[in-house]
Nucleic acid binder design. Structure first.
Length: 157
DNA sequence: GCCAACGTTGGC
DNA sequence: GCCAACGTTGGC
């Protein structure tokens, strides 16, 4: 019998499909975690930033993303990661965009964190000091490294 | 309400 | 191509 080992990501061969990890920001007063749970598959539309759009183009079905509450209405925690969702359809034209330049992905809620992880806790944790969330605070769709993903899930699930 | 970061626009 | 003005995002 042949044993097949799973390759860790750092040894992934070119062309091998490994899940990638992301962070999606939304204002809870516009579209929050509870809305995502309620609607099921949700089109992530309205993104009008090239870097964010390129990140969405790099997404594949099965990729995971933290769902992050930003802006007003984030309550006592302030801005925070609230849950985990997954990509259920790849980038396609944004139906809210007349120019055809912008894309959406489709995401679906998977699970809520045991407790929200506030931005202030992320900022205070040296293990997370390199997160794109901190380095580019205005980017609404940002990548998360596998290490960052595992570290946060280890603490928060 | 303020401000920093940063993207876009338009004059030159 | 440069840069000032302006608008938006998002944290505080």
């Amino acid at each position: 019998m042949t044993q097949i080992k799973k390759q860790p990501q750092k040894n992934a061969k070119e062309g091998q499909v490994m899940p990638k990890y992301w962070l999606l920001k939304s204002e809870p007063e516009e579209f929050g975690w509870d809305d995502l749970v309620r609607v099921g598959d949700a089109l992530w539309d309205g993104v009008r930033n090239h870097q964010a759009a390129n990140n969405m183009r790099a997404m594949a079905v099965g990729d995971k993303a933290f769902f992050y509450h930003s802006g007003p209405g984030t309550g006592k925690f302030g801005p925070h990661i609230i849950g985990i969702c997954e990509v259920t359809a790849p980038a396609q034209r944004d139906p809210t965009d007349d120019t055809g330049k912008w894309v959406v992905v489709t995401v679906r809620a998977i699970e809520k964190l045991l407790r929200p992880l506030p931005l202030r806790a992320i900022k205070a944790d040296p293990a997370l000091s390199q997160m794109a969330l901190l380095r580019q605070s205005r980017l609404s769709v940002s990548p998360v490294s596998r290490d960052e993903w595992d570290y946060i899930c280890g603490k928060s699930i």
